[in-house]
Structures are given as structure tokens and as C-alpha cells.
């Protein structure tokens, strides 16, 4: 006989932002959100993190921009996309109609551009928070990104936090020696949360031609292949920081997402999975709910940070 399971409380409180559930879509893998309207009910998401925005529209890298590798995808898109003004004029008015939280992933080719993007967006309504993408190559520093050192991370986060009226989530890169040091620098600089991981620097080679398979030579690896790395980093960071952690990297199922919560993430972002199944994020919410119901977990937040190491 089928037993009707008790409803599971999926609400997630990040302190500065309340979400209907802990599942957001990861930046760069969900377009500007509207592309997905034919495939799922956007209001069922905990939140949408839109594609990274620079001040001006960006050209992006020459193709090939994608290569599939075992259980993963390497991308070198080069952050092609519209600039902030076009986003605010054409896309934001539609996103504002949604009940789900809209978070803007902020990019910059140098610290001034990050500041300019935030300054402009601060004047717009309908944005719940900023996600600071500190992995953008800096044009003035031979392409090094702020995420690479605690110092540059601290300086950028401090500046943007002071300049902006909205909560700030700092998105961390896994391509560093100590993820904890960088996360702590972001926390000291006043970030309201950290999100990790961005893609893992990678490459693929065509043996026959001995050429790189990507136009840009290097790219960022995402998908199930990076999940174990992401889980480890989320656990390390969540164990040391006071601010909430948003976890991501290779989440394909509700079980994957719950593992990130166990490791200490308060919420998760779904990335590459949305390419395979445009409705993946909503399916993942449903799967999390079912798992909780089946395991007698009344609220999904009760799973957060429950890793047993003894």
C-alpha cells in the first residue's frame, strides 16, 4: 500500500536570502534563464544564476569551444555574451516577473570593470544577489585571475562589497593551491557567502593532428568528472568558514546534490546537467524531496553538514 509521504520542508535560508529550495542553476550553463522556459517551470527553482556579465558585450573565443571527455565537458567559451545594459533592457524585465531568485554572475577584465558592472546593476531592480566570478582572466596581469591569490581575492571582494547594495556571493576557482586560504580571504573581505567550484583548468589533444582540441588550447572541465574534487573542496571550505557555502561540480541527480549538503553546502548549483536535460534542476529538487521523505528527514536543511567522520 502506498503511504503518502509527509511534505518535506525544502526552504533554504542563506541569511541574506531565502530560497524556496536549495537548488540554483549554475552560471553559464543556464543562459539567461529564459532559454529554458519551454522545458521547465522556472518558478520551481531555488534560484537562477545568469550567465557571467561584463560591462560590454563580449566576442568570446574561436571554435572549437567544447570537447567532451570521459564523464565531463571542457569548455572555452570565453564568456561571450551581452553587456550589462542590454541585459538590463532586454532580459531583466522578463526575469523580474519570476518568483524565483535571480542572481547575476559578475565578471570583469580588471577590478574597475567588476566595479562598473555592479555600479550599473545596483540601479536595477529584481536582482537578489551578485555572484562575483573571480576567475575572469585579468587583461592587465597576463590573464591571471583574482581567484589565484588570497591578496587579489581580498582586494576585489572588499572593493565590490563596499561598492554594492546587494548581498555578495564569491565564486571560487578550484585551480589554486589552497582553496581554504582563498575562501578565508573572501570571508575576511566581507563576502556574504562563497560558491564553489568553478571549472577545473584542463585540455584535450587530438593525437593524429597533435593539435589541441579547443581553439583556446585550455578550457574548464565540468560535469561528473569533477564531482569528487568539488565535494572535497566544499567540505574543506565549509568546515572552516562561518558564511554559507554553495556547492557545485558535476551534480546530475538529487543524490549528488544531497552529498554536497552532507559535505556542508547550504545550497547547490546545477551546471552541465542542464545541457543534457534542460529540466534537470527541477528533477533534482524532486529527487531530493523524495529522498528526504523516504529517509524521514523533515527539512532538507537538516542534512547540511551531517558528514560523519568518526
Amino acid at each position: 500500500m502506498a503511504v503518502t509521504p509527509k511534505p518535506v520542508d525544502l526552504t533554504t535560508d542563506l541569511g541574506f536570502l531565502k530560497l524556496r529550495n536549495p537548488v540554483l542553476t549554475a552560471s553559464g550553463t543556464f543562459g539567461y534563464g529564459l532559454e529554458f522556459e519551454p522545458y521547465l517551470d522556472l518558478d520551481k527553482l531555488g534560484g537562477i544564476v545568469v550567465k557571467g556579465l561584463y560591462d560590454k558585450a563580449r566576442e568570446g573565443n574561436p571554435p572549437p569551444r567544447l570537447v567532451e571527455t570521459p564523464s565531463g565537458l571542457i569548455n572555452a567559451i570565453g564568456l561571450q555574451g551581452v553587456g550589462v545594459e542590454s541585459f538590463a533592457a532586454k532580459i531583466l524585465p522578463k526575469l523580474r516577473q519570476l518568483k524565483t531568485a535571480v542572481i547575476v554572475n559578475v565578471c570583469g577584465a580588471d577590478d574597475d570593470e567588476y566595479a562598473a558592472v555592479v555600479e550599473f546593476l545596483d540601479k536595477q531592480e529584481g536582482i537578489a544577489a551578485y555572484e562575483l566570478n573571480i576567475s575572469c582572466p585579468n587583461v592587465k596581469k597576463e590573464g591571471a585571475c583574482p581567484a589565484l591569490s588570497p591578496r587579489t581575492t581580498f582586494d576585489l571582494v572588499k572593493r565590490i562589497k563596499a561598492a554594492s547594495r546587494r548581498p555578495l556571493i564569491t565564486k571560487l576557482s578550484p585551480n589554486v593551491t589552497s582553496i581554504v586560504e582563498i575562501a578565508q580571504a573572501a570571508e575576511e573581505a566581507g563576502t556574504d557567502a562563497v560558491a564553489l567550484i568553478n571549472t577545473v583548468l584542463a585540455m584535450a589533444i587530438d593525437l593524429e593532428t597533435r593539435r589541441p582540441k579547443l581553439g583556446n588550447v585550455y578550457g574548464g572541465l565540468s560535469g561528473p568528472a569533477i564531482k569528487p574534487i568539488a565535494l572535497r573542496m566544499v567540505h574543506q571550505v565549509a568546515s572552516r568558514l562561518k558564511v554559507p557555502v554553495i556547492g557545485m561540480g558535476g551534480i546530475m541527480t538529487g543524490a549528488d546534490a544531497l552529498e554536497f549538503l552532507v559535505a556542508g553546502a547550504a545550497a547547490v548549483e546545477v551546471g552541465t546537467a542542464s545541457f543534457v536535460d534542460p529540466d534537470a534542476a527541477v528533477r533534482i529538487v524532486d529527487e531530493m524531496e523524495r529522498w528526504c521523505a523516504a529517509h524521514g528527514v523533515a527539512a532538507v536543511r537538516d542534512v547540511v553538514g551531517t558528514l560523519k567522520t568518526a
Partner: peptide, 9 residues
């Protein structure tokens, strides 16, 4: 579906 910007020409 237009979301990844990977397929450009």
C-alpha cells in the same frame, strides 16, 4: 538550445 554558446560559427 542556445544555452552554452559552444556551437558558434
Amino acid at each position: 538550445i542556445g544555452a552554452c554558446w559552444g556551437c558558434v560559427h
